[in-house]
Nucleic acid binder design. Structure first.
Lengths: 308, 308
DNA sequence: TTGAAAGCGCTAACAT
DNA sequence: ATGTTAGCGCTTTCAA
């Protein structure tokens, strides 16, 4: 019966030919990770590192393999994107949402490629996407600062073309409004989502004498640390800081950074899951974030900022 | 004639089916990059970043795409390595040589997978491989230090299970012998090929009062900087340093590091080329290195170390 | 339960 | 130069 076949399979080391399977089943088992930069940009960014790690996990679970499809940024359009390879060879692609990603995403869809978007593109309807609770996470972070008694809480985030930055700003406003406070735009500063951007935004913000800062990304929080150090200000005594990212292996800050932890690897795994699941043309999976408290927002003496 | 066909191709947006092509031609156009670590280890290492970048370039040239095949290190054997995917799906794989890579490489070969090795495995015969001039590069670096008049040149490199470290040590000896000097093993220190390893090796070496150090990797050179700073010694006045790697985007050292530059991206491109080229079962391509001089080995005043 | 056959979309080897 | 055909190794349907 079939046990005989199994025996021969074991004996001869038979392996089904993936190409033949792909031909008949219309599924190659290959998915693409489309990135809007050169490959070497991808490396070194701990966010991508973690995302790729999660994608790898997801691929292992679904018996898929993934390939990195870099799209040179200058052109960044769907024409150049598939050097005839991404088309037909892959069962689907994962694209990260970013300032320039929308035409790429719609281009891919027009080509009939199954797409899962990580993050929130400007046109985020009718697509499969995975994102995190940017708004709720930010609200929790700022809410915590408010509970700790901080009065003048600044926002240091990316420029408005980064959707996640806009969402985190909304969460910041949410918390202020929820606490019955005015949200004062003078306490909001935006710059490139990098350490240097965080530094310059913070330096500018300091003229408003904030007693706490919510930084929309951990690198920007690191920049805030630098800016404060340059001005001779201490964390958290003079200015408390809460960041957003919580990536493993992130540069350790001193004092340790309180931050909103987003499950990046889980995002990657989930993206693969959405790609692997048949059907479904539009679905958003929003993963929760969690607030990880550390030393950067402790009201040191335990009373300094309690009450007014 | 055929122009009509071209017209219809353009009109209908016809694209050949990759699976069908793969089936009939026995070539999938997919190559694997086998790495002996988890995916997230791969990131953040500028060497891999650069290598992957070169592989990507090579793939673009040869109309291939590549996929990352992580092999969990604990097992690291050929059994676990191909979750039935790497086998048959890829036209070949690129493996980097390392302390534990030999069984993997031979296992892959036994499986009938076309393999190109980056670096020098212990059993480096009868394989396709790409490497750099570790020995000559090191000799040039140390030779330069000798010409600059340095007398007690130390070697700080990885433990002997790293082949490239052993080769760079041989180059160090070459230069000393060529200059008619004794090679004194007391000036040789080995540790993990990391910044911390370089630091501890250098601290240990300092008891021998070297006036120059050849570090076998740039991260180790960075560790040497740290160690010297801890001891209040200046580069290059007290101790000159030359490193090995010269990767772009490497942490900038102050004073700027003289180093042996290895063309890592070129190694990646070449590896793809070897994989793509038909025939050839054994061939070693050894790419040249070049010495990039900077401030870390200038004999400051221009005379301090000239002559004895 | 087991066996036979059609056909996925291409390439390569033929015949016209 | 163009047209026709066999067959790559599977999966799926249909027949015994």
């Amino acid at each position: 019966m079939r046990s005989r076949v199994q025996a021969v399979i074991a004996e001869t080391g038979y392996r089904p030919n993936p190409a033949a399977r792909a031909l008949v089943s219309n599924r190659s088992g290959l998915i693409g990770l489309v990135i809007l930069t050169d490959v070497d940009e991808l490396f070194g960014d701990p966010y991508y590192s973690e995302l790729v790690n999660g994608i790898q996990q997801g691929c292992a679970e679904h018996d898929l393999i993934f390939t990195i499809v870099p799209v040179p940024l200058p052109t960044g359009h769907s024409d150049t994107l598939a050097p005839q390879l991404a088309q037909g060879l892959v069962d689907g692609v994962i694209v990260t949402a970013g300032p320039r990603s929308d035409p790429l995403i719609s281009g891919l869809r027009d080509l009939g490629v199954r797409v899962v978007v990580v993050g929130h593109p400007d046109d985020g309807d009718q697509i499969l996407r995975v994102d995190v609770e940017n708004r709720l996470g930010s609200r929790a972070a700022v809410g915590h600062l408010i509970e700790d008694g901080y009065e003048r809480i600044g926002f240091v985030g990316p420029t408005s073309d980064f959707r996640f930055g806009a969402e985190r700003l909304v969460g910041y406003h949410d918390a202020l409004i929820e606490a019955g406070r005015d949200s004062d735009d003078r306490l909001v500063r935006r710059a490139a989502p990098s350490e240097e951007g965080g530094r310059s935004a913070t330096l500018s913000l300091l003229t408003e004498r904030p007693d706490a800062i919510f930084a929309a990304t951990d690198p920007m929080a690191a920049g805030a640390y630098r800016a404060l150090a340059e001005r001779g200000l201490n964390v958290p005594e003079d200015v408390a800081i809460v960041g957003f990212d919580g990536l493993p292996r992130q540069a350790l800050l001193d004092p340790s950074l309180s931050t909103v932890v987003q499950p990046v690897a889980e995002v990657g795994r989930t993206a693969v899951g959405l790609l692997a699941a048949e059907g479904q043309d539009a679905k958003s999976v929003i993963l929760p974030t969690s607030l990880r408290l550390a030393s950067s927002c402790d009201p040191g003496d335990g009373v300094a900022h309690l009450g007014a």
